[in-house]
Structure formats: C-alpha cells, structure tokens
Design a protein around this nucleic acid. Sequence first.
DNA 1: TGGTACATGTAACCCGTTACATGATTCG
DNA 2: CGAATCATGTAACGGGTTACATGTACCA
Lengths: 174, 174
Amino acid sequence: MSLRHAVLGLLVGKPASGYDLMKLFNSSLANVWPATQSQVYGELARLADNGLIDVAAEGPRGRKEYTLTEEGLAELRRWLMDAQPEAQRSAALLRVFFLGVLTPEQSLDHLAKLAEQAAADHARLRELQKSRDWDEGGMLTVNGRLALEYGLRLYEMREQWARWAAQQIAASDR
Amino acid sequence: MSLRHAVLGLLVGKPASGYDLMKLFNSSLANVWPATQSQVYGELARLADNGLIDVAAEGPRGRKEYTLTEEGLAELRRWLMDAQPEAQRSAALLRVFFLGVLTPEQSLDHLAKLAEQAAADHARLRELQKSRDWDEGGMLTVNGRLALEYGLRLYEMREQWARWAAQQIAASDR
DNA sequence: TGGTACATGTAACCCGTTACATGATTCG
DNA sequence: CGAATCATGTAACGGGTTACATGTACCA
C-alpha cells in the first residue's frame, strides 16, 4: 500500500489539505503514482486515525490541514528503505506476446504506434523538464529530477525497442 | 481488464483447462501478466458465460477444456489493435521522489540495491533466454522473444540509471 | 449575483491477493 | 495404499475507479 506513503511523503515539511494534495497528485506525482480524490480523502482519514498524521489547523470551507507526526515520518523512513521489488504488469507487453494473431502488417502498424507513443511521451517529459519550477530548492525538485531522468531513459528505450521489434517482424515475414 | 485477454490469447490454437493455463501464467506470462488460480477460474467461467470461449471437452477429475469461439478471437484481435497507453504506477520511483528524507548515505545504499536488483533481474532473463524451449515454432516463441528483449533492455537501463542517480546524489552531497 | 474555485466526503463496482475447501486420479 | 499431482472452486479483504452528493468562499 503505497498511496499511504505517497501522502506521507508529500506532507514532509509542508502541511497540506486533501485539496492541496490532490493538486500535487495531478501534477508532480501523476506519472509515478496516480491517485483519485476519493482515495486521498479516505487515506487521510485513515492516517489520522492511525496517528501518522494530525490535523494541525482548520480553515474556511471545512479545510483541514494535516501535518506529519513523528510516527508518520518514522513509517515513511522505514518504507523508503525496504526495497522489495514489485511484480510488474504490462498490457503493452501482453499485446506483444499475442501479436502473432494479427497479420504482419497489423503488427508492424501496432509497433509503429508504440514507437510514436514513446516518442511523444519522451517529448512531453522534455517539456516538463524545461518548464518546471525546478528552482525552489526543495527535496522534491532534486529527486524529482532523478525520477524524470528515469522517465526519459525509459521512453527512449521503448522507442528503440519498438523499432527493433518491427525490424524483427519485418525480417521474419520475408 | 487484460486478464481476460491474456486468457483468450493463451487459448489461441490450443484448447486448455484452467489448470493448464495456470502453468502458462506461472511460466511464460509470469513476468508480464501474473495471475492467481482463483482469478483464472473465475475469468474462465465469465468468458464462457459471455460466449467468448466454449467447453470443448470434459476430462477426468472434472477437467474442462476450453476453446476460443469466433467472438473470442474477434475480441482478442480488437484488443490487440487499440493501443491506449496505460497509467503506470511505480513504487520504486515513488521512493526516489522522497529519497531526500533519508541521509545521503542511506540514499546511496538504496540506489546501490536498486542497481544490484536490476543486474540480478537482467541475469535471470539471460538465463531464461538461453534455457527456454524457443524452438517449438509457435507464435508464443517468436513474440516471447520480443517481450524478453524488452525486459533485457529495461533492466539494463535501470541499472545504468541507478548508478547515474547515485552519482548525482554523491555529487550534490559534496 | 452568479460562476468558479475551494473543499470534503460516500457508495457501488471491478480487479487482484490470500486463504480455505474439496475431491479425483495416477503412479510407485 | 499413500503421496503427489491434477483439478476446480468459494470467501474475505484491500486497493483503485467512477459517479454522486453537498456545501462554502471568493471575485468580477
């Protein structure tokens, strides 16, 4: 359950409301750990129950600002250090597995689309890299850069791979 | 819902029982789309209800062999061609985002572990690549190779990235 | 005063995991 | 005959998505 830790992480050093957190989930974390409003409010309630966060202040319109407690920070640290690998699921790769069901032309078409998609994603991240307020000096920015670089490398790899795979199919078709 | 399509894909050309499918999920598809026994039997029942598969034969011990129907194959083809990108979730990247909460030493240690893990995964796939019965000539083998190559490239990229990220942190620490 | 942004919550549903439960056949 | 393997299913629970529901404050 990592949503919990995403919330804890976002609260480090800066109190925030559920509404505030949603903005962060929709911007910075959108590519890494998407979450819905429904989920966030639920998790905040649970975290408060468990004493990992506190309601530090209440504002207008029922706004509740949460802060991390000692236990919350400890839990975040604990989670940060145990690096057990996650079982990945990839619909894209699953499609590749069964690509033989299609005609070679259809397969090539599909792989071309994957390559384009990867290129587009890569471009999107490049924009993000340029435009972002990377200058606030918070820890989000430093480590956000690392995560972003991962994304750039991932999409580049994907594009290359898709082109290579297309060649393989084209070759075996001949 | 891709479990459904994984099942359909595995049934192309070769009738199989839930038990047979589980073996495939635990071997070929383990790295791409893991599934539990519970899930598979449930999905088979649902697919049969929807007319995408049929019970072609019944064997000893209540064994039921399923075959793909026309509609099932059509649905698989349809799914294979719409390449809408999936929203990825990565606990590993989420950890990177919040790495600033740890000391630089702890961060470096964590990244080193990630690099090792990636290297180990890479090695595992290399073994798979060598040992596998890639010679049956079915579509699984051809496209399985493509998927495997994707894995190899992914893990190599990850290792490189983790080492690079460690350097970044080491540099900004100084 | 009317629209937009702020702000929080609930309910139904789907997918996936773990654990439990049961029994038949084959083979040494 | 006993163990391993074959074979199918159910129940409880957790996490995620979508849709619904409600209301307040601000500002043009």
